[in-house]
Amino acid sequence: MHKKVTFGGFAFPLVLLLPQLAITFVFFLWPAAQALYQSVLRQDAFGLRTTFVGLDNFARLLNDPSYLASFKVTLVFSTSVTLTGLAVALLLACMADRVIKGSGAYKTLLIIPYAVAPAVAGVLWYFLFNPSIGILAYLVRGLGYNWNHQISGTDAMILVVIASVWKQISYNFLFFLAGLQAIPKSLIEAAAIDGAGPWKRFTSIIFPLLSPTTFFLLVVNVVYAFFETFGVIHATTSGGPGQATTILVYKVFTDGFVALNLGSSAAQSVILMLIVVLLTAVQFRYIERRVQY
């Protein structure tokens, strides 16, 4: 990662870095430090007195049934979003990789959801599943199931999972397609000559060779499901009904801004940061490993 040729000087590169460092410090590092600091404090009900409580905020959280429930919701949600999203995108990418005629058109159409904001994606599906006028809700009712995500927690979860997966399909599709196209055609041909049929070729050659891409997308999708789906949930179910779709990020938001429970919200932020650090570390290890190829 080094250039043979470099320019000298100390002040000039620092001036170049200054804008980014300043913004990073003011809007990233300082707030993160604040979150750490506030996570060990507690304010009284009127916001008049602040006391140091050590790890008490964390202890309370871990004993708080609603927080633990939110953890469970997040796990169910992110697992569903990640696995469904990857499976659908992989299927489509495999098909698009083999198709010669019209692959450009398919690709163009399939990347559209990337441009759609999670909140808007949520609204679109919310409308389709609207219990009184939604066309999909109507179809499901025709199948004998009385869909109502305003009452049923399961229905609400399915709704936000579908909307989140729909939005993420493009991203996964593009990466799977790039991964597939990077597999040398000669390998596939060699396998075909060895007598492997399409399915055999997929399981024994394509899928193993695609594993770096799959692993990368796995991490990215977990991060996506954890954080970026806030818009999907806030714009549609608002975490409900009850707490059926309150994922961790949503809870940080409601506890901090709606309930104004600063200490608890800060502690939740810290826990989320730990999760991101963990995920980023995993991702970095993967990048490092791949660099060596």
Partner: peptide, 29 residues
Amino acid sequence: YFRFPFRMLCFWIIFSTLMLPVEVRILPT
């Protein structure tokens, strides 16, 4: 393109933003 003291430190400060999406530091930000 430059070699200067604290180069790697600056690099990592910038990269730390990857780990701090706005969603996790809502209130303080």
